[in-house]
Design a protein around this nucleic acid. Structure first.
Length: 276
DNA sequence: AGATGCACCTGTATGC
DNA sequence: TGCATACAGGTGCATC
């Protein structure tokens, strides 16, 4: 479910609820979602610690604790982090519960159980969560046309796969890749080797633009996504391509098509986004 | 290197 | 209604 805008919205909504709070204890209802260290140690290490601040890297949420440790969360498809009063009934699929010092709980739930949590200790090298393999943040000053061209132009892949590669751009996923390609009028199957300087420039501009717009609308709720307070995102009506099969292109009126590219459902306008 | 398929899971929508 | 199948904001691995 969540791509960069959704994770960023979770971060923003949880920040006032968690900053300065103390984690009293941690309960692993389904220990296997705690990927590192093993559940027992994870719970012991997180317990009795203050939360300093929340960060984000790509699609990872970072909960920074006193003493230099961090809880790292990846929501994958259906993961949710919700802050809620401890007296409220637990919803099904609640897998990890962080009890806080103010009668609230931070609850991790995940219907499909693809998501994972890690705890990085102070001084520990994080070679387990996947963060070490990420490329640039789209809002990094070094994220520009040259960066994209240098990373990608020699590869024999199409632009959809390229933009989904987290080691190139951290945080783009299936929805926003389709939105970016629509904005810059590139067909998802276009080989990256074909792209010209102006294409790289357009991509470098469109990626942060598309993501910022989605963040401004608190992310996209297509199915499952909820922010840290349990609210849906409001960006869906603004999507131009994703999920609009058979609906008219807002530029030319042609029907939006869907096809599988890189194993993912991909939506595009067959007139505006020529395969060539 | 890259393409493909599958695995991880459950819920929901669709078609017959 | 019931049952089978497809599909879902992600990632990692195995195989050709």
């Amino acid at each position: 479910m969540p791509e960069l805008p959704e994770v960023e919205t979770v971060r923003r909504t949880l920040t006032p609820l968690l900053t300065g709070r103390r984690i009293v204890s941690v309960e692993a209802v389904r220990p296997e979602v705690l990927a590192h260290p093993l559940a027992e140690e994870f719970c012991a290490l997180a317990a009795d610690r203050n939360i300093l601040e929340l960060g984000r890297r790509g699609k990872y949420l970072l909960i920074k604790l006193e003493g230099g440790a961090s809880v790292i969360v990846h929501l994958r498809m259906t993961g949710r982090l919700l802050c809620t009063p401890a007296i409220h009934e637990r919803k099904p699929h609640t897998h990890v519960v962080f009890r806080l010092d103010n009668g609230q709980e931070l609850r991790y739930s995940d219907v499909r159980r693809f998501g994972r949590l890690w705890l990085q200790q102070s001084g520990e090298n994080d070679d387990f969560s996947g963060i070490h393999k990420l490329g640039l943040e789209p809002f990094d000053a070094a994220f520009n046309a040259d960066y994209l061209r240098d990373k990608l132009s020699a590869r024999r892949i199409n632009i959809k796969q390229a933009l989904l590669d987290q080691s190139v751009i951290a945080g783009l996923g299936n929805i926003y890749v389709d939105e970016v390609l629509y904005q810059v009028k590139l067909h998802p199957c276009r080989p990256v080797a074909d792209l010209k300087k102006k294409d790289w420039q357009a991509l470098a501009a469109a990626v942060p633009e598309v993501l910022l717009q989605a963040i401004a609308n608190n992310g996209t709720t297509f199915r499952d996504y909820l922010d840290g307070e349990g609210k849906e995102g409001s960006h869906m009506p603004y999507l131009e391509a994703y999920g609009r099969r058979g609906e008219p292109c807002r530029r030319c009126g042609e029907q939006i098509e869907r096809m599988k590219v890189a194993g993912r459902s991909s939506y595009f306008c067959p007139i505006c986004q020529k395969e060539k």
